[in-house]
């Protein structure tokens, strides 16, 4: 029977064959749904309001656009870092991962500044509740993502991964890409859609 063909099989967490890689995709489905519902809440309430929307006028785009670029570049670095591992350039991989983390932290700092510049707060009006809840949810995901990247960095520096075994980097990287991709939707909704 063909199921008993005698060929060698990989053992354990082998890249995209690992359970974790499948698990993180399932997680992304459910987290993606979460953000979908958050944006549904935004559009549902925005389309039903009689007030000016957003109440403080159109949002400024400069800072958030720069921040979007920062996050996307960080995503590219995580991808590059994983690629370097596959090419057995561990030291370069560590360096690139550091850059990715620094960019991630930059995003958080810029986002916090953006928050403090807003004229409204979480509870001052409906828009404020939406704005801070949606960006807050995303910021939490970014912070979790940064913690994950830091762990990967530590594990890389400890020499845990090589070209054969680095499922954790693949999995963590997918999560980081997801966090960045979701930002594009959040950005479009909160910053670009009012201009339509």
């Amino acid at each position: 029977m063909d199921t008993f063909d005698h060929y060698a099989l990989p053992v354990g967490s082998a890249g995209k064959l690992s359970a974790g890689w499948w698990g993180v995709w399932a997680l992304i489905v459910t987290e993606g749904a979460l953000f979908g519902y958050l944006l549904f809440v935004y559009f549902y309430l925005a389309t039903q309001t009689d007030e000016q929307w957003p109440p403080e006028g159109l949002p400024s785009l400069i800072v958030p656009t720069i921040n979007t670029v920062i996050l996307l570049v960080s995503s590219a670095f995580v991808w590059a870092s994983e690629r370097c591992i596959r090419l057995r350039q561990i030291n370069r991989s560590i360096g690139i991962m550091m850059l990715a983390i620094i960019l991630g932290i930059c995003f958080v700092m810029v986002q916090l500044t953006e928050w403090s510049n807003k004229a409204y707060a979480l509870t001052s009006n409906l828009y404020g509740s939406l704005y801070f809840t949606i960006t807050g949810f995303h910021l939490c995901h970014v912070i979790v993502g940064i913690v994950v990247l830091m762990l990967l960095l530590i594990w890389l520096s400890l020499g845990y991964f090589d070209d054969k075994r680095h499922a954790a980097v693949t999995i963590g990287g997918v999560y980081w890409h997801f966090v960045d991709a979701v930002w594009l939707f959040v950005f479009t909704t909160l910053y670009l859609s009012p201009y339509l």
Partner: peptide
Amino acid sequence: PQKTLAQRTVSGTA
């Protein structure tokens, strides 16, 4: 990452 789960390289330095 654990060696028993083959999640990391055997030759790891740490």
